[in-house]
Every structure is written in C-alpha cells, then in structure tokens.
C-alpha cells in the first residue's frame, strides 16, 4: 500500500476509532449500571441476604426494647457505635465490644475485645472465644438477647440442612425489675441442649409466664416456662407443634427451625 493511500485511510479512520472508543465506554458503563440494577432486584427478593440470623432482644436495655430484632451478618463487630455490624446501644457496651464470625460447624463464634465482657448462656466469656448455637443467650452490658439462626444454617445439622417448617417460641419478655442489670458470674456449666432451652409447646396455657432468666444463685435456665396465651400464634396442643402459625407473621418469622425435635 502506498504511503499516500495509507495516510488518507489512517486520517479518515481516526474519527471511526474515536467513535468506536466512545461506544465502547458507553456500552461498558451501561453494562455496569444494568448489572447493578439486576443485583438490586435480586437482593430485593432476598431481604435477609447476607444475614445468618438475628438477635432477639428479650428485655428492655439501653435504647433497645424487648422484641427488637437485630440482623446478624456472617462476620463483623458488635458494639455501641452505628458503624458496627451489629449495633447494640446499651449501657456498658463498648464502642467495639466483640467480634463474631459464623462457622457452619461451630455456630456463631464470639471473640471479645480486650477489656470487654459478655455472658453466654449465663457463663462469663472471660476473654475467650465462645460459640453460640440457635437459641443461645447473650448478654452484653444490660442488653439480653437470644440468637435465632435462619433455617438451613442449623449449626448442628450442617450447612446444607433443609429448613423445616416449624416455629420456635421464645420465653416472653421480662421487665428489668425481674432480673439484675448484669448477671453475676455463674460458675461454668455445661450448656444445656437447645431442646432444654427452648420450651416445648405446652398442652395448656395458664396465667402469665414466670420469668425464666437466672436468679442469683439459681440454675442457668428454667427448663419449662409457661407461655402466655396468644391465640393467634400459639398452637392449642402439642400435636400441632409442627404446624405454621396461622396468624399474621412478622418478617423475621419466615425462616425458623424447631429445636425441640
């Protein structure tokens, strides 16, 4: 090809190459943005994506109230600042109190930071790592919480366990007057199996529930609390324990596992 011809072709094609370059950039950003929108649509259908469960606050403490739910990601930091992955605005809760990570075999592994203390099922962590299973109690500062793992993340049965369609019943909320702000340090006890912690659905429901939280010097947990009457959610007999509650369900009730079996 002669130099003159090439020069004409090259000078003409520079506008084409620039146009193609602009098209490439526009297509790349369009792909980027459409991918992002697609991901958002997927995540909208999975409101608990990235979460392994939640802490259910059992008693009023700090800025939290009984019945509050705090979602738990796979790993992170629990503390009293909003930048923490699990935000617990309670008294005596440090800015960054402990770190946690979910392990399919061990459950939710907690590691307190230096100088921070917490109670797991009434037992002091004593600056060591402890694991929480579904239904375990955790007290940080004056905030008492119970861990609820989502179905399929049952640490005992393994990661791939299919969820079962049953609900759990937690002991009712207890007012602060019925238990001290911070548990006294109990001697280390064997953590009771979840079935002992989680009450079986009672055949009869009578009267207000007795508090199930440890009194000073008492046992770690009372095994058989009485559940108050809640016709919309509580089954009438033990035979119906495997049925879903028929009434309005909260969003957090969607994935639940019955540990009583």
């Amino acid at each position: 090809m002669s130099e003159e011809l090439y020069e004409v072709l090259s000078l003409s094609s520079r506008y084409l190459f620039t146009l193609l370059g602009v098209l490439i950039v526009l297509r790349a950003f369009f792909w980027l943005l459409s991918d992002r929108a697609e991901k958002r649509r997927r995540l909208k259908k999975l409101p608990f994506s990235g979460m392994i469960g939640e802490f259910v606050v059992l008693a009023d403490g700090g800025d939290l109230h009984a019945g509050d739910h705090i979602s738990i990601p796979w790993e992170g930091v629990l503390g009293s600042v909003r930048s923490c992955d699990v935000y617990v605005p309670g008294q005596e809760v440090r800015r960054q109190h402990l770190s946690f990570a979910f392990d399919p075999d061990q459950g939710l592994v907690l590691s307190p930071f230096r100088g921070c203390e917490a109670l797991v099922n009434g037992e002091s962590m004593n600056h060591r790592s402890l694991s929480l299973r579904h239904g375990s109690l955790l007290q940080v500062g004056n905030v008492l919480m119970r861990l609820r793992l989502f179905a399929g993340l049952d640490a005992n049965a393994g990661f791939d366990a299919a969820p079962s369609a049953v609900t759990t019943q937690f002991p009712p909320a207890v007012s602060p007057a019925e238990y001290p702000p911070m548990y006294p340090p109990f001697p280390a006890q064997e953590v009771p199996a979840p079935a002992a912690i989680m009450p079986a659905f009672p055949a009869e429901i009578a009267g207000p529930a007795a508090p199930v939280f440890p009194q000073e010097g008492g046992p770690v947990l009372s095994p058989a609390p009485k559940v108050p009457s809640e016709p919309s959610t509580v089954p009438d007999s033990a035979d119906t324990v495997t049925q879903r509650p028929p009434a309005r369900r909260r969003r957090s009730d969607r994935w639940e596992v019955d540990w009583s079996e």
Binding site: Y6, S10, L16, L20, R27, W31, S34
Partner: peptide
C-alpha cells in the same frame, strides 16, 4: 436481556481491533 450489553460491547471491541490491525498490517 442480561447478555445484550455484553454482546454489543464485545462486538464493538472486536470490530475496533479487527479494523486497527488490518490497517496496520496493510501499512
């Protein structure tokens, strides 16, 4: 729909380099 942005981008990129290398090869 999810593959359309990628297909078009790839086509434009392939066209760009095919033309560019042809031009240089001819020169």
């Amino acid at each position: 729909k999810s593959h359309t942005p990628g297909r078009r981008l790839s086509l434009v990129v392939m066209l760009f380099f095919a033309l560019a290398f042809l031009l240089l090869g001819a020169r």
